[in-house]
Simulated assay, not measured.
Amino acid sequence: METALEEIEFLALSANRVTVLERLAAEPQSRADLADATGASQATLGRILEDFEERSWIRRDGGTYTATPTGKLVSDGFTNLLTIVETEQSLRELVPYLPADALDFDLAHLADATIVQPTQTRPSAPLQRTLDLTTACSEIRSFSHAFNNQSLATVEQQVADGDLVFSGVFSNSAIDALTAESELCHLLRSLVEAEDAHVRVYDGEVPLAVTVADDVVHLLLRDDRGILQGSIDTDAEAVQSWAIDRFEAYWEASRPLEASDLSH
């Protein structure tokens, strides 16, 4: 009997094998159905079906084939492995900028995430993704170590127009950076004074820049120098739950930012 690794290799070395098993695990198929799905020759398809029958992964029922319970088990497990590897590949370049200790949810929940990275022609693409989400939502809850001028201006305008309810918790350093510039300080004061905005200051470190825009969780990633490296956003329920719990924890441990706190 082949080892488990050998069986995995047997399946992985042929995209046609994977496709055939996945389709049969979903519903019964005829040989014609499988040929259309794979584009494989009848000879190749015959070998695949014979190999699967020898392993008791499938059974023939008249003119159709279907996966056995163990065939479905193998198909489900292999599909999960493919999803995990595909997710890892999509995140690989951003791994150095992910604060692993803070992301205490299963990264498999990022399988369908939208990942945006800066390019030579679009260096601010991740930030633009943030702004697009901001202008498309009605409520934002945010916690971050930074609040850049474009995001601040967009949020302030959306709130002033009555299109957005905003709640944000920021580190001291983020607020200090804004108050150091008179124009940004003015925008921040306008936001703080708005009825539909609530800004708080957290005295400790905030290792993430997270925005919950309606039901979308958006992470903006920077390197140690503060240079933008990418963004990740998802509407996965598990990530939403994580982000909201984090936001509420920072909110409870922070203090309100008052207009009188702003020096300019």
Rank of each mutant, 00 (worst) to 15 (best):
L91E: 07
P207I: 11
T66S: 15
A100F: 12
I48Q: 10
L184K: 08
D33N: 15
D106G: 05
V239F: 03
L103R: 05
L49P: 01
S75F: 11
L24D: 07
Q229F: 02
S138R: 14
L5C: 06
H109R: 07
S56R: 14
R92S: 14
S124T: 12
L21D: 06
A15G: 13
T179I: 13
Y202T: 00
S14M: 04
H218Y: 09
A249R: 15
L49Q: 05
V217L: 09
L188W: 11
R189G: 05
V165R: 09
E88W: 14
Y97N: 06
D112Q: 09
F170Y: 14
T83K: 15
D233T: 14
L221T: 00
R17S: 05
D176M: 08
Y65D: 02
S75A: 15
F143P: 00
W57R: 03
V95C: 04
F52Q: 01
A102R: 13
S231G: 15
A40V: 04
T19I: 15
L133M: 03
G204D: 06
N148A: 04
A194W: 00
E93Q: 12
T211P: 02
D163Q: 15
T87V: 12
H264I: 11
D106L: 06
S151A: 08
L91A: 07
T79W: 09
S14A: 03
I140K: 05
D36Y: 10
I227Q: 12
S138M: 09
S241Y: 09
A136R: 13
F52N: 00
D224Q: 13
S144Y: 01
D196E: 14
A40C: 07
S41R: 13
F105T: 04
D214W: 02
R189Q: 08
T68S: 12
S254D: 07
A160D: 04
Q29V: 10
G46D: 08
H264D: 10
S182F: 09
H186L: 10
S167P: 03
S41V: 10
S182G: 06
R122G: 01
A197L: 01
S142T: 12
D215R: 14
F52R: 04
F78H: 12
G71N: 13
K72P: 06
I84D: 15
N80P: 08
S231V: 09
E205S: 14
L184E: 11
H145I: 06
F166L: 02
A4H: 13
